[in-house]
Design a protein around this nucleic acid. Structure first.
Lengths: 229, 229
DNA sequence: TATTATAGCTAATACCCATTAGCCTGACAA
DNA sequence: TTGTCAGGCTAATGGGTATTAGCTATAATA
């Protein structure tokens, strides 16, 4: 019964690229290597495929944001924080499945209330909650200024999410987008993070200067390992 | 020749609600009060309508973000900044034309390169540049910490843009969304703004406390004065 | 007044698309 | 071996949709 999964995979790819209404069941079937009517042995109709995709989006949400497993180690310095976060962003940007899911959801978000909710969870709540946990961890270790973790998480993630959306529609700008994101990350560090040796320095925020840290970065990793098209 | 504009208006409303592929020329015509074939006296086809809409989106961009006229007075205090900004956000959230344009663009952003660019300008560049100007003005008057205005503008606008997008797909959450946005705004003030009497206090950032300012707000204004549906 | 262009209409065309009916084959269970 | 059924196929159906052809009436123009 690998066919059913192949159908979902093909449907997601096509919905992400051309939208639900812009995709015919015939195209999906062709991508799978079968004829359109055969598809009805696996799904009751086009809308049934859509619903299955939403189910899988919700399952994916649980996997990615549901458990605290994906938080990983709490970064112990600015540099580590920037490196780890940029890695996560680069992964999220390039992973074919996540990318398709993002493009699919953003286009179909108004199709139903359920899709609206799932989109909000993926684009907003999930990421925000995940980084709130990380930030909370860093607060506990006195690496970051004490404040509402959810609020700081929004400050941290919102620009990244918007830039990511831009990269989805204008992939040719990817490099400069990554640079913008890193600039934002370093700004966030400058504003909210204390270095380890500054522990206990209370409310004081470290200097507002750019400089340092401008290496770490940029091993493109830009080969989109996406297949079948 | 009011018909041509009526067609564009109807098309925008329908595209925003059901997407380009989810809208038939017949529906557009019906909304205008004519029959589908009559529509071809004004446009060469469905795609021609789409292109005209993109043109109008670009024109609208010029009107809203092209000139410095819409910046208005530079706010002279935190409270004024919050009030003025919340007003702008509430307007952007409710104005029927802007809302439809936003929903239209977000759904059709992947349809062509041009649509991708226009979407980026509307969702990112325009707002960012506009607030960069405002922030720069406030820096010049020493009301805000000196830093890269474009960067601070992103910090300021990104969460608002994301929340606005959420309000578009889940309008029932509008109230709490506005509260979240205001919370973010006040946080921004706390971090970056100095009060007037603090002028010249250099790099020091005022206390990180919540409290004060929790009035100003909340005269819903929530009647969407949108007609014909 | 005569003419012409504009902007509406009906009818028709040609295509696309989701779905159904019904047949066939090959694997596996009895 | 025989029966069953999952999963493929072809052919057909029915509805929708973009677009064109061609007619008509009204309003502007000569």
């Amino acid at each position: 019964m690998a066919t059913k999964d192949k159908i979902l995979e093909a449907a997601l790819a096509l919905f992400a690229e051309n939208g639900y209404d812009g995709t015919s069941v015939e195209e999906i079937a062709k991508q799978v290597g079968i004829k359109a009517p055969s598809l009805y042995k696996h799904f009751r109709g086009k809308e049934d495929i859509l619903n299955a995709l939403i189910d899988s989006a919700e399952a994916r949400y649980e996997v990615f944001f549901g458990s605290d497993k994906n938080i990983g180690q709490i970064p112990q310095s600015r540099e580590e924080f920037v490196r780890v976060t940029m890695e996560k962003i680069r992964f999220t940007m390039h992973d074919p499945m996540i990318r398709k899911m993002r493009k699919f959801l953003v286009q179909e978000q108004f199709r139903s209330e359920r899709l609206a909710e799932v989109t909000t969870r993926h684009q907003l709540n999930g990421i925000q909650r995940m980084y709130a946990k990380i930030i909370e961890g860093m607060m506990n270790e006195d690496l970051i200024v004490k404040d509402d973790p959810a609020l700081l998480s929004m400050e941290l993630t919102a620009p990244a999410v918007l830039y990511l959306a831009k990269a989805d529609r204008q992939p040719q700008c990817e490099q400069e987008i990554l640079e913008e994101i890193e600039k934002h990350l370093r700004h966030f560090c400058r504003i909210y993070m204390k270095e380890k040796f500054e522990k206990g320095s209370g409310c004081q925020v470290s200097e507002i200067r750019d400089s340092d840290f401008h290496d770490t970065l940029m091993n493109p990793d830009s080969d989109d390992k996406d297949e079948k098209q």
